[in-house]
Design a protein around this nucleic acid. Structure first.
Lengths: 212, 212
DNA sequence: ATTAAATTATACTTTATAGTATATTTTTTA
DNA sequence: TAAAAAATATACTATAAAGTATAATTTAAT
């Protein structure tokens, strides 16, 4: 028998609104718990039994909602990728004042790092557990961010507003200091995300030697 | 029988110089191969069979030289910790010109990150696979670096040489941009470690608003 | 050269965990 | 309310990988 049971994973028929909402809610719960556990213990070290126990269900419950362990990670990272994409896609680095664009980029960037700090940490730690094509998508995204930063810094230099050498490396440094936030941000810390983002923009503008 | 066989792991009797050197060399080889594999595949995903195969030996060979898998990771990180320690221990942040000290700190910091980029990556990825006391040692080291940076930035502000808000956060940002180097540095890239370190110090001094 | 010690391999055990076949319960539909 | 479908659990299999008992081999000591 070559036929396999088809599980209602992913897209499902629109039957009853409420039932679909319940289904989605369950998936959501699985994702939330998994994210927390993956973050604290790492992907490999987090067993499905632990996730199940944490949810108060059994393993097949999870397999009913997700194809396998890896697909849970995939969903989490895919979603975070989406947030990064939304944040950066809207910024046009080719027009407008460079100092304004750079400030905007860093501000948005910082806020999304803080918002997604748990899965952002996973980008840098559990990336290797992803299939090749996803790894490449992540790389592309990173490159896109770096390129946008580089471009706007270059424009600022051309306009004589910024004074900094090697815009490419400067971008990597900006990306570094912003991304690094995921390692030290504390929700109960003394600064709010907005305050941090503001400071971050000051530092970056200083760094690129903005003409005051 | 409560007696257990005692394996010659770690410290050994000084019998013959050449033999000890061979022994150390083998441990060294195991560490090198393991480091490369841990880096590329992650600690958990690297099996001892893979390490053994890569070395062209069998598993008991490795167990003869190391207590277990974790102790290999431990040795690698311990050694890297030592390098970080050596680099920072020599710097006195309480005396001398702040701009000189900061420059020196960033320079050393950048070079050691590049030199130890493989195991530095492991600090941030496989830390959770360490026993608690080691994790704490690593945290302490990080804190020490941040504190040194903070202190020197504060001194610079007091002296009216630097102009930057929130020295604590500035330090975290400096640590971030420097550490981040491990993600993008390429041995065959267009810049040498020294060039990168020099650029990095320029960026940092700009960032803290040095009076030129 | 013979014995003892050190080193390495063969072949095994144990354990943990991803994943599944099947039964049971719950919910929906007619 | 009976039948069908969906959702969840019980109890299992398969497998990978850490770690080890023991044998074989190599090296050193007398």
């Amino acid at each position: 028998m070559a036929q396999k049971k088809i599980k209602p994973i992913g897209t499902r028929k629109a039957k009853s609104d409420i039932r679909n909402k319940i289904f989605d809610f369950k998936r959501e719960q699985i994702l939330e718990v998994s994210e927390r556990l993956f973050y604290h213990r790492g992907f490999q070290a987090t067993t499905l039994d632990i996730i199940a126990e944490e949810l108060g269900v059994t393993k097949p419950f999870i397999y009913y909602h997700f194809k396998n362990k890896r697909s849970i990670l995939l969903h989490l990272l895919e979603r975070t990728m989406g947030k990064y994409h939304d944040v950066f896609a809207g910024v046009d680095v080719e027009s407008g004042k460079p100092e304004v664009i750079l400030k905007d980029l860093v501000q948005r960037f910082t806020l999304v790092v803080i918002e997604t700090r748990v899965s952002t940490a996973m980008f840098w730690r559990d990336e290797k557990d992803l299939p090749l094509d996803r790894k490449e998508k992540i790389r592309d995204m990173k490159r896109d961010v770096d390129n946008k930063l580089t471009r706007v810094i270059e424009r600022g230099i051309d306009d004589g507003i910024f004074d900094v050498k090697d815009p490419k490396m400067a971008s990597l440094c900006v990306a570094g200091m912003v991304t690094w936030t995921y390692t030290w941000y504390q929700a109960d810390g003394r600064s709010t995300p907005d305050e941090i983002a503001d400071r971050m923009t000051e530092y970056v503008l200083n760094m690129v030697g903005i003409r005051k």
